[in-house]
Write a protein that binds this DNA or RNA. Structure first.
Lengths: 115, 115
DNA sequence: GCTACATTCAACCACATGGTTAACAGTAAC
DNA sequence: GTTACTGTTAACCATGTGGTTGAATGTAGC
């Protein structure tokens, strides 16, 4: 619909398209963590994790704030909402089992004319 | 073909991270379309659209089947479900307004979304 | 087989991504 | 200021992405 909305969805879905980043979101959802704490479970450099955090932050899915010499990573869960709302539009297509209907029509040689 | 859950989510979210592909999903949700019909609204080559369809197909969000010399593109809406379920886990964080609570508790700065 | 049409594949390009290591910068403690 | 620690930035590399054009494939009909 709106273009800025599209760009927002681009960045959110892109941020979610990496398993490491999704895992990081889970980690910080439960409890705020420092960057070091976020990075520790992952077998990659701190710099790599920092870049993942940049991606998540530019999608506004996390925020970093400084506390002393640490940076605290916090989830901004509400900003997942546009993605969930976008997906919710498709509920009707599986809830009403149109997909199953089409699978049925496709599976046999039933050719329902598109017109 | 998608193996693990994580890889499946990778491919789904990646497929959704492009506005053209999201738009294509909307287009074929309403009604099955040929590749040519899908491509017509977009200002890019048919080959480019075909590549977008490849991405959507490898995420199993669409299926193509041949009918005569045409290929019919059909939505496989149910396969959006893993993405929606992944996101649904975060509902509690905004529904219970823990996000706002944490912002309040942690923050001197009341940063409200400036967008 | 030949022609026309629908779509994909191949080769190519510019740029983004995810990772590395090493250098740099902010903060605290001495 | 120096040292130690936390985290980001820079430079680099291999691979992936989104687009192009043009050739190739598959199907229908003559």
């Amino acid at each position: 619909m709106v273009n800025s909305n599209a760009a927002r969805l681009d960045s959110i879905f892109h941020a979610l398209s990496d398993a490491t980043r999704r895992s990081i979101l889970r980690d910080v959802a439960v409890k705020d963590k420092t960057v070091g704490e976020v990075a520790r479970p992952y077998r990659m450099s701190l710099a790599a994790v920092s870049k993942h955090l940049n991606v998540l932050e530019s999608a506004e899915l996390i925020a970093r704030r400084r506390r002393g010499s640490f940076q605290i990573v916090r989830l901004k869960a509400r900003n997942l909402r546009p993605a969930e709302q976008w997906l919710a539009w498709y509920d009707k297509f599986w809830n009403r089992q149109l997909d199953a209907l089409q699978t049925y029509l496709e599976g046999d040689e039933h050719e329902h004319n598109d017109g």
